[in-house]
Structures are given as structure tokens and as C-alpha cells.
Design a protein around this nucleic acid. Structure first.
Length: 413
RNA sequence: GGGGGAGUGUCCCGAGCGGCAAAGGGGGCGGACUGUAAAUCCGCUGGCUUCGCCUUCGUAGGUUCGAGUCCUACCUCCCCCA
């Protein structure tokens, strides 16, 4: 499996990024022979990417680090259609304004992982709206539609779920795979891009692009997919109870991001270190060998390294220090997320908990209090009618906690 | 076209002879145990101005003191026959 001669594939392989490659020998030879260009598409379905996309981003990063040119494709056009792959029902269509706003949010993150420019291995960012928005329907059908048979498209696993459930798959969505295939063709022509990467759920779509390249331009293109990542207990990467693990700092603080990785399951530590950090495999092997409570050290390294890559070393160290003070010293630490409330007029505890995101309704907050989950300045609270006022301030803030892991500092308005 | 079956707590799956805020799972949250892990055990898991009030069982009507449960129409899906 890892008999790759190119540094690019060898690294991806040994770090666990590879699920399938369309023509492993061919791609390996191409990557060995010289710099190649490869892309991954990101649709603008939310205003930030989340941890589930991190594997893709890391693949682009490794591509660049091993001397190739990564292309981040913004799905400004395809998002208007919506990818139906492996979804059991169609998603709501996003407005054009919404897509533009989401795209702006998503763009930010790439600069932290890739270095952009015009040089041979500088990353590029392109938007498929540039070519998809102005396609002429009839011309497009005549030029490219002839290369796709419905028979074949219906055979893809990605649409089977929908078809088997006899859920409607609209013609609009059905076109998504054609447009994604066309993207690949466009990028091969415009950017000399020969590789498309993505999650394993994208395999069918990518292969369609390879077919199109062969038929239109007699060009050899490649596909490389990463495994669909779940945690050891089966949960999807990047989702927690509180919501998605966003990459944008304004949607998830560096502290909370650090916490997400710190709370990884034991069984995931080695795998995650390989995928989400750039530590050497030897170092990862050492960390992964730690047993019992010592593995917490490995989790801290994972959290700090992963956070440093996204938010910078300083933010990562600060998060680590805040966590250390909070969890290991049991003190309130200044780096905890803060919440500003009116303490002069007083704010009810229930309302404060909802504002802190500890509960979604007063009732839920009340039940948590009755269940003994809530503490103020580390003292358990039993009274759900309590009102937060300045009298509770300690060191300029009130530390409001729920459970062992959720802490917020309430400060006066 | 004909016949039969199904849509349940806006996370999911799923019970429900007319008295139902609705069994049971899963998931999630909290507690205990630990190592900010896993497993296990326990509690919680519609909303509110909470001894009470309000909104929930595909949609809209109807019967009834009272409907998730019965009736009518409609929507969607599954199966059999043509």
C-alpha cells in the first residue's frame, strides 16, 4: 500500500489520508516526475467550514509542502444546486446572497493552511461560479451532456439512497454531478490541474470528471479520496452536541476548539495526530504509546498543535494555559469565554444560562439546576430563582459553570 | 385503474382497547466512577409568569364531556393485483 515513490503520496499514505486512488501508479509517477496541480471543492453551505473539512484542507497543505500546487475551489456555482450525494432528502436552496456571505466566511480559513500567490507551488483559489454562472444551456448539453448516460448516473451509490427510498431527486440536484465533473475539466484546462481530491463520498462525482476529461481532451486525470472520518465511537467528525466544530474563530473560540481536541477519545489519538498535526511519525508513535492517564499528555499536544495550526501558536498556548488553570488547578481563569450581562439590575440565573449557551430554554436550565449540574464561583447552586448581581463578583467576574467542562465568566455590562 | 398498509414528541427509530405531555430504545445533557477518555451505573431529555396554563402525534374538517386513538376529504410513501 505505501510503496509510493512520490513524497506526496507516501506521506498521505502513511498518515492515513488515503481511501481510494483511481490510478495509484499513474498518479505516483506523475507526482514523482514533477509538480502537479490538484484541487478540492468546498461548497458554501455555511458561513464557516468545520472540523469535518479539515482532512481535505490538510491534504492540500501536504500537497503544497511536498512541492505541488494546491487549488482551493470555492463552490460559488455548485452551491446554487446542492450536492445530493448520499443525502436522503434535498436540502433547502440557499439564496445567492447567502452563498456570497458564506463564501466570504469560508475563504478566510485557507490562508492559514496554504500560502497563496502566483508561483509554481503557490496555492490558488478559484470560484466555479466564474464558469458555471454563464453556461449556455443548449451549448452545454450538446458539448458535454452527450458524454453522460442516465443509465450510468443512476448506477452511482451516491444517488441510490435517494432512489431506493423513493424520495424525490430533482433534476436540479441530479445535475450536480455533471457540473462537478465539468469543474474538473475546466480546471484541467485553465490550471493544468490533473488531480481532484475529496471525501470518499465524492468518489462517484470525481470519477465522472475523469471520464469527461478523457472523452473531451483525451486527458488522464486522477482521483484521490480520503476515508470518511468518524470518531472511534462512530460519531461524525466535527460535530458535537453543542453544534459543529467551526474553524472560524468568531464562531468557535480558540479555547473551545482546543477543548474539542483535548476531549478526543483515547482510541483516536494516534489517528488524529497523524491527520491533524504535522508532528513526525516518530513523535506520534511515542505519544501514541502512552498508556493510562499519561495519554492525556498526548491529547494536550494534539489540542495545542491542531489549534496552533488554525489560530496561531499564541492562541493555542493561551488556550492550553486557560485549560490548565481551570481543570488542573480548579481556579477560574481569565481566558475562559466571557459573557456580559446586566448585574446592576440583576439577571436571572436561568436567563444567564440560556445566554451562556448552557441551555436552550429556561425549562432546560431549570432542570439542570435541579439536577445539581450548575455552579457559581465553583459553589453548587440549587435555587433556580437566583439572580446574578454585582454582589457575586469575584475578581471582577462571576464564574458560571455547568458540568465539569462548561465554564463562562460573567462580567458586568 | 383496483386492493391492502403506513405517516407519532422538529435529532433518529419506534409502541400506543377514546382520558396522553403520550411506553421503549438510540443519541444528547447532567451525576457517580475515572484520566477533561472509554466502558458501566443513576437522573433528565415540549414551552411558560410551573400547586396552574399553553402547544404537540401528515393536512383540513367532523363525531364526542373528552381524539394520537373513531368518521370524512386531501397530501406523501410502501406492498399486492392490472
Amino acid at each position: 500500500m505505501s510503496q509510493f515513490k512520490s513524497e506526496f503520496l507516501a506521506i498521505l499514505s502513511e498518515r492515513g489520508f488515503i481511501h481510494q486512488i483511481s490510478d495509484p501508479e499513474g498518479l505516483d509517477a506523475a507526482a514523482k516526475a514533477g509538480a502537479i496541480s490538484g484541487y478540492i471543492g468546498f461548497d458554501a453551505t455555511a458561513s464557516s467550514l468545520h472540523a469535518g473539512s479539515l482532512v481535505q484542507i490538510m491534504m492540500l497543505r501536504w500537497m503544497q509542502k511536498t512541492g505541488h500546487r494546491p487549488i482551493a475551489l470555492m463552490g460559488g456555482g455548485t452551491t446554487k444546486i446542492g450536492d445530493p450525494s448520499f443525502k436522503d432528502e434535498s436540502r433547502k436552496l440557499l439564496s445567492v446572497e447567502q452563498i456570497a456571505a458564506n463564501l466570504a466566511g469560508i475563504r478566510q480559513v485557507f490562508g492559514k493552511f496554504l500560502s497563496f500567490g502566483a508561483g509554481p507551488t503557490d496555492a490558488r483559489m478559484v470560484n466555479n461560479a466564474d464558469w458555471l454562472d454563464h453556461l449556455n444551456y443548449i451549448d452545454f448539453l450538446r458539448d458535454y451532456g452527450v458524454h453522460f448516460t442516465i443509465n450510468r448516473m443512476l448506477s452511482f451509490d451516491s444517488v441510490k439512497l435517494r432512489l431506493e427510498r423513493e424520495q424525490p431527486l430533482t433534476f436540479l440536484e441530479f445535475n450536480y454531478m455533471i457540473l462537478q465533473a465539468y469543474d474538473f475539466l475546466e480546471l484541467s484546462r485553465r490550471q493544468d490541474c490533473v488531480l481532484q481530491m475529496g471525501g470518499s463520498d465524492q468518489w462517484g462525482n470525481i470519477v465522472n470528471g475523469i471520464e469527461l476529461g478523457r472523452r473531451c481532451d483525451q486527458r488522464q486525470l486522477f482521483a484521490l479520496t480520503s476515508p470518511l472520518l468518524t470518531t472511534s465511537s462512530g460519531a461524525k467528525m466535527g460535530k458535537t452536541a453543542a453544534g459543529a466544530v467551526w474553524l472560524n474563530a468568531d464562531m468557535l473560540s480558540p479555547y473551545d476548539y482546543w477543548q474539542y481536541w483535548r476531549n478526543a477519545e483515547d482510541a483516536d489519538v494516534t489517528r488524529f495526530l497523524k491527520l491533524y498535526t504535522e508532528l513526525s511519525l516518530a513523535e506520534i508513535a511515542r505519544l501514541g504509546a502512552l498508556g493510562g492517564a499519561e495519554i492525556n499528555e498526548a491529547k494536550k499536544v494534539l489540542a495545542t498543535e491542531a489549534t496552533a495550526m488554525l489560530h496561531g501558536r499564541a492562541a493555542a498556548e493561551a488556550a492550553a494555559e486557560t485549560a490548565r488553570r481551570t481543570f488542573e488547578d480548579g481556579q477560574s481563569a481569565a481566558g475562559l469565554p466571557t459573557l456580559t450581562l446586566d448585574l446592576d439590575g440583576g439577571t436571572g440565573l436561568l436567563a444567564a444560562m440560556v445566554a451562556a449557551g448552557f441551555a436552550t430554554s429556561n425549562g432546560e436550565a431549570r432542570r439542570s439546576i435541579q439536577g445539581g449540574a450548575v455552579r457559581i464561583n465553583d459553589e453548587p447552586v440549587a435555587d433556580d430563582k437566583l439572580v446574578l448581581t454585582r454582589a457575586l463578583l469575584a475578581d471582577g467576574a462571576i464564574k458560571l459553570s455547568m458540568g465539569k467542562k462548561k465554564h463562562v465568566l460573567v462580567k458586568p455590562a
